[in-house]
Design a protein around this nucleic acid. Structure first.
Lengths: 159, 159
DNA sequence: CATGAAATCCCATGATATCCCATGCCATCC
DNA sequence: GGATGGCATGGGATATCATGGGATTTCATG
């Protein structure tokens, strides 16, 4: 079986079409990653720093919720974080054919208008981009690494 | 009920209309969250710091009562919190169609006049806002997090 | 009691979302 | 290289949801 279908990581970039009903195929390898994690599903929200949507597993969102529970109720910090995170987050339901329907408001936020969506693997999370915007972002990220502005951290736990 | 909604968290922002009889649809995903928590019901009270109503499950209100029990009896802090929270708390009954009717006094407190209500997910609780007031609050919360004024507590054990 | 106001039940409707079946493409395997 | 199967995609049928309104019940008050 293909490596990509056998890992719990979200990898590679998949560009799929939105059909007349607003549905998009959620990439098969991402579905496999969800299954490998025994995940109940995914949520998406607007990225704070990029013109993209962030995709998390529901389990990860629950972890974030638990972390926020450590903060004092009604404190300014907790309120701001809860609002910024949860008020914009939506569950991305995946149907039996492996498709999802992107909420129109979120799709509009990242400039998806031409019925094409790029699902971008980020390891334990993923992102959703308008394809050409992602191509541009990818180029600038690559350039940053090439030029040495950005370095890779040490790997730990290597054998 | 939709079984595709797989989280017990209150997520996203849902703006619904109040009809001629004062009824509003309680968002379906919130109803699913209640079911996932096997909750007995929901209460609301005026937010301590925001122009909004706080929505809690009755179970969570009990937790909060317990937390207040930790404080010294008759201390100023305890008295103030108990009064501010419990004295203003009302049940939010949800009918068979999934609608609720907002108590008029509480609706008026948060400036709901144009027959539109925003139900805002906050993870394990939710809030009720006048929609445009919430849009402003959301922006300032998002900006605070973006700018780094507010930091997220560390997550542990992520894969 | 009687009565009006308000709340609740019950049914209807349009829009949207989901289910289910079908097709076409591409890679892999024999 | 023809067959097979996974995957992306399309469309009709069906279910869900937010919303509206009539009818019935509840309830406080005269």
């Amino acid at each position: 079986m293909s490596l990509l279908l056998n890992t719990s990581l979200f990898l590679s970039t998949h560009v799929n079409k939105i059909d007349g009903k607003g549905r998009v195929s959620f990439p098969a390898s991402f579905r496999a990653a969800l299954a490998a994690r025994s995940s109940q599903g995914v949520v998406i929200f607007k990225s704070l720093h990029e013109t993209a949507l962030e995709g998390f597993t529901i389990e990860r969102l629950h972890q974030m919720a638990q972390a926020l529970e450590q903060l004092p109720p009604f404190s300014a910090q907790r309120t701001a974080l809860e609002t910024a995170i949860f008020a914009n987050t939506q569950e991305l339901a995946i149907d039996k054919e492996g498709r999802c329907s992107l909420p129109k408001d979120l799709a509009a936020l990242v400039g998806i208008t031409n019925n094409e969506v790029a699902f971008v693997g980020k390891g334990s999370t993923f992102q959703i981009w308008e394809p050409s915007a992602h191509a541009a972002a990818l180029k600038s990220a690559t350039d940053a690494v090439k030029s040495g502005d950005v370095e890779f951290p040490k790997l730990t736990g290597l054998v």
